[in-house]
Write a protein that binds this DNA or RNA. Structure first.
Lengths: 255, 255
DNA sequence: CGGGTATTTGACGACTGTCAACGCCAGTGG
DNA sequence: CCACTGGCGTTGACAGTCGTCAAATACCCG
């Protein structure tokens, strides 16, 4: 199976670059420095995950949670018919996989690595301990969920009310803003580790239609793409096409 | 404005029926009896809200949170174009409107009463106090958000991957299961306080098409409806049409 | 260089949106 | 009591978006 431990490699020790990202990561970002040592106690280690492997799978009972340090991860749900929905593209700093211990509930979705990834693993029980002992962390976790939920709500609204072209434009802008915070945008070029099938699964259209819409955007001079690089040539116009307010949108990303 | 205080009426004292519902409501349900007195201290009162009034509005900075005691509420988001997405139908027991105090963030959505409603109001600051002082409550709040988020993810998947007919069938089953827990289903009949426009806004299709699909379902002998009453005549077949597993779905409702 | 994967394109059709008209019903005011 | 009105649901005709199927091309990795 893809998600067994053989598909991931433990990394020791922390490289400086990764250590630096820790301070940025979602759960601990706003918490005081004193907590850092404390949470280090509970950290179980970092793992490297090859592209296309499942980190965890829908239906699986998880007793771990993860912070994504490096790479892109797609959170997905699959229907009995085989259709797949991409719920969210997780980027470095995102918190993955935590579910409170309500009766050993299985995970509601899968996480699959889109690139080589590095994750930091926490046993779920220690997350619970931390939440119990540290009201700051509890509050922060509530904020994280609140943020993700607002993001889900945007996603629902987008899929429910916008056209294919609008949804794709919005997805690109969303990634642009989130990557900017991670200093991964150079000028108007950003990395894009998604296939057109991934894009389609994220916004609820087929990959064939994604190709058609992306051609329209290209021919309108709004985007340019090649390999894993995407250039947004006219951000303002793209936002207008998508029907979103760029300032508001940039401020409302969950991370 | 619809959301000003003139549109709601304070209710005193608690009627026994409402008092009984308190023990069921989302935030406090699993918390020990000793907490009940304590949280009563923070409760600010109950209000009656006429149908079609906004309880709170997207963009508004909220300093209150609500528990819905009676009635139906639609949580909605409106696009600049005027298109509206119904994010969730809140039923009695649901917890509404709480957002952690991240820099006075405005609400991401609106809440509108679909029927006459009774809500219990909490000042937001007291929710935060409670979360800080009671780890059990913090954990419960995290669970609530987790549950809502899993629900949002189902919603995204449904809108993104299913046909109009499947989405409508799924919506009806969702309401059926949630109303069953509230003992509001008699045989196969349940109340339905949604217009076809509401239904369409919830599943991302137009009200005209809702009408067409509901006719198909009616002519297939799956549903019957009149006024605010809906009968699901063949639950199993409806689940098959929707492409969902009824047992799993019934168990996964957020409330 | 070769084989598999991803993208592109065309043709066609189904599903869904739009526009418009009509009927039904409840509430309102005369 | 009855006509009036507005909201909601229904239906038909038509158009456009998007899905499906199929084939060709481009691309990447070994």
């Amino acid at each position: 199976m893809a998600q067994d431990s053989s598909s991931r490699t433990r990394i020791e020790p922390l490289t400086p670059c990764i250590e630096c990202e820790i301070r940025e990561h979602a759960l601990f970002r706003p918490v005081e420095q004193t907590l850092l040592d404390w949470k280090q106690r509970y950290r179980q280690g970092q793992y490297s995950i090859p592209p296309k492997t499942q980190i965890y799978t829908e239906g699986q009972v998880l007793d771990e949670a993860y912070t994504l340090f490096r790479g892109w991860v797609a959170l997905t749900k699959t229907l009995p018919t085989g259709k797949r929905q991409v719920l969210r593209i997780a980027l470095p700093g995102d918190f993955l996989g935590y579910q409170p211990n309500q009766l050993e509930r299985p995970s509601t979705h899968s996480a699959v690595a889109l690139t080589e990834c590095v994750v930091c693993l926490f046993p779920r029980s220690s997350v619970e301990t931390m939440v119990f002992e540290q009201p700051d962390l509890a509050k922060r976790l509530i904020e994280i969920y609140q943020g993700y939920m607002a993001y889900c709500q945007e996603h629902i609204t987008s899929i429910g009310q916008r056209s294919a072209k609008q949804r794709i434009a919005e997805l690109f802008l969303d990634l642009l803003y989130r990557l900017r915070r991670r200093a991964q945008v150079q000028g108007n070029r950003m990395p894009l580790y998604l296939t057109q099938e991934d894009i389609g699964d994220a916004v609820g259209i087929t990959s064939v239609h994604v190709s058609r819409v992306m051609r329209q955007l290209r021919e309108a001079g709004l985007i340019r793409y090649k390999g894993h690089s995407l250039a947004l040539l006219d951000e303002a116009e793209l936002a207008r096409v998508a029907g979103v307010n760029p300032e508001r949108m940039a401020g409302a990303r969950p991370d």
